[in-house]
Computed example of a mutant assay.
Amino acid sequence: MNLENNIKNNHDSLKNSVINIQFQKQNEIIETHKKEQFLEIKSVAKQEQELKIITSNFRKDKLLIKNIEVIGINDDFLQNADKLELINLIKNYLIVDEQIVKNEIKEQWDSNKDINLIGIKGINFKINKGEK
Rank of each mutant, 00 (worst) to 15 (best):
Q99Y: 01
K91I: 04
V18E: 14
Q37E: 08
N92L: 08
K15L: 12
Y93T: 05
F58I: 11
Q99L: 07
K8A: 13
K121Y: 01
K129T: 10
K35T: 06
G72W: 00
I54D: 11
S13F: 14
G122Y: 10
I90F: 14
K52C: 04
I29F: 04
E31A: 10
E48W: 01
N88K: 10
N27F: 01
L14G: 05
I71K: 12
S13I: 06
V101D: 03
Q26D: 14
N92Y: 07
I118N: 06
E48P: 01
Q49V: 03
K91L: 14
W109A: 02
K121S: 07
Q49C: 03
K35E: 13
N74C: 15
L39N: 13
I120N: 03
I41S: 04
G72A: 11
L86E: 05
S111D: 08
K102I: 07
N16K: 12
K34R: 09
I54L: 08
I7E: 11
R59H: 00
E104G: 00
Y93R: 06
K62H: 08
D61G: 08
N6P: 01
N20I: 04
I54Y: 00
E40C: 08
D114I: 13
D82G: 06
Y93I: 05
K52W: 01
I21A: 02
F125K: 09
Q26A: 08
I21C: 06
N6M: 12
N128V: 04
I105M: 05
N116S: 14
I41W: 15
N124Q: 13
N9H: 01
K15R: 12
N6W: 04
V96R: 00
Y93S: 04
G130Y: 02
D12G: 01
E69V: 05
N88P: 03
E50I: 13
K113M: 08
K102N: 00
Q24S: 12
Q26G: 10
D12K: 13
E31L: 15
K60L: 01
E85D: 04
D114S: 06
I127A: 02
K129G: 04
N74M: 09
